[in-house]
Simulated assay, not measured.
Amino acid sequence: MVAAFGHSDQMLQYQIVMAVVAVSGLLAGAFSHEKLIDTALYRDLVEICNDLLWEFDAAGHLRELRGKFAKSLEFRDFWLGLSWKDWVVFEQPETDLAALRAALAERQPFQHLVLCVRLPGQERWAWTRNSGVPLFDEDGEFVGYRGATVDISDQKQAEALHKKAEALLQTYDETLEARVEAKVEERTRILAEVSLRNWRLANYDQLTSLPNRNLLFEHLRKGLQQARRQWRLLAILLVDLDGFKQVNDTLGHDAGDELLQQVAARLQQCVRATDTAARLGGDEFTVLLQDLEAPEAAAAVAQKIIDRLAEPFLLGSASAAITASVGIAL
């Protein structure tokens, strides 16, 4: 081949070969220089990084721990070779363990996964945030993972205290709301009772518990309206007790009050539930009869009242007799 070329051709071929060799050397040098720069930069970052830098092999066994955090853990040689599963607390809920398993199975990067781990040299477990990337050799073969771990135990503790404070505040709010509601219900009940008591005081006789003049007139007004609409009769019976003053003067005011109470009870026994027996005052009573078909019905009730009140009254150890006069207005 050399014989086929002249001297000048041989020189050209030599120069080309030397140029190729020179370019290859320059490229190799450039690549080596860049690799050295990257290596130096990595070492500098490792020295100043506060995170726990780690590397696991393809089988998941610890190969290296670096960084300031690693130095503070007082690294032990026997830690090397332990599986990542030896560090993770599987029993702790609310972690990203499922996401980690999925990433490892697919040999994919993962970022900011929250895990509960047993840090080397530490008796207690810690909450951590973890990020990692898969490693491959020049032939594309998977060789492990490299990544960083940050201790976030203080942050998790603060979050737990915050949640506890929120729960306590919510409990306090619910308790306060319940107490306020109970107070409102109690006050509403008291106001209702006071209102009902005042209404009864204004509309009922305190001695006999019969409707008084106010409530009688209200029933009379409604009864007259109903009678006009339905073309029915309405009657008013005026009941006056004869002999009451004598009982009151002879046996005393307490016996007189008891007599009035028994008269009220007998009047209510003589009328229907839809009728009204009322006390106007003293020994005067009124009975309002509604929805009557004939005047005779009012007369029958009046006679019933007269007969019933003519029966003797037992007033303690004494007995008293009175009569009644009944007037009817239709």
Score class of each variant (00 low, 15 high):
Ala255Lys: 10
Leu104His: 01
Ser83Glu: 10
Ala277Asp: 01
Trp127Glu: 02
Leu201Ile: 08
Gly132Cys: 03
Ile306Asp: 12
Gly6Met: 04
Ala192Asp: 05
Val89Glu: 08
Val247Ile: 09
Leu267Thr: 07
Val46Glu: 14
Gln10Ile: 15
Leu234Thr: 06
Ala318Tyr: 14
Asp205His: 03
Lys35Tyr: 00
Arg129Glu: 13
Arg272Glu: 08
Ala324Val: 06
Ala182Trp: 10
Ala318Asn: 11
Val114Asn: 11
Ala126Phe: 09
Val271Lys: 05
Val301Ile: 10
Gln122Met: 15
Gln261Glu: 14
Leu169Arg: 03
Glu106Pro: 00
Pro120Val: 05
Val150Ala: 10
Asp173Val: 13
Glu218His: 12
Asp137Ile: 09
Glu293Pro: 06
Ala148Met: 02
Gln261Leu: 14
Ala167Gly: 13
Asn203Val: 01
Arg229Ile: 00
Arg179Phe: 07
Phe244Pro: 05
Ala58Gln: 10
Trp54Leu: 03
Ala202Gly: 07
Arg189Ile: 07
Pro211Asn: 09
Gly140Arg: 09
Asn248Tyr: 06
Glu159Gly: 06
Leu330Cys: 09
Val184Ile: 13
Phe75His: 15
Gly67Arg: 02
His7Ile: 07
Ala165Thr: 15
Asp44Met: 11
Glu138Pro: 02
Ala102Pro: 09
Asp77Gly: 12
Leu207Asn: 08
Leu237His: 01
Ala22Leu: 13
Asn198Ile: 15
Glu74Val: 05
Arg189Lys: 13
Gln262Gly: 06
Pro211Cys: 07
Ser8Trp: 12
Gly256Ile: 04
Ser153Cys: 05
Phe217Ser: 01
Ala294Cys: 12
Ala59Lys: 11
Tyr204Trp: 03
Val21Phe: 04
Arg63Cys: 04
Glu311Leu: 07
Asp254Thr: 12
Leu216Val: 08
Leu97Glu: 07
Leu104Gln: 01
Gln10Asp: 12
Val117Arg: 01
Gln157Thr: 14
Leu220His: 08
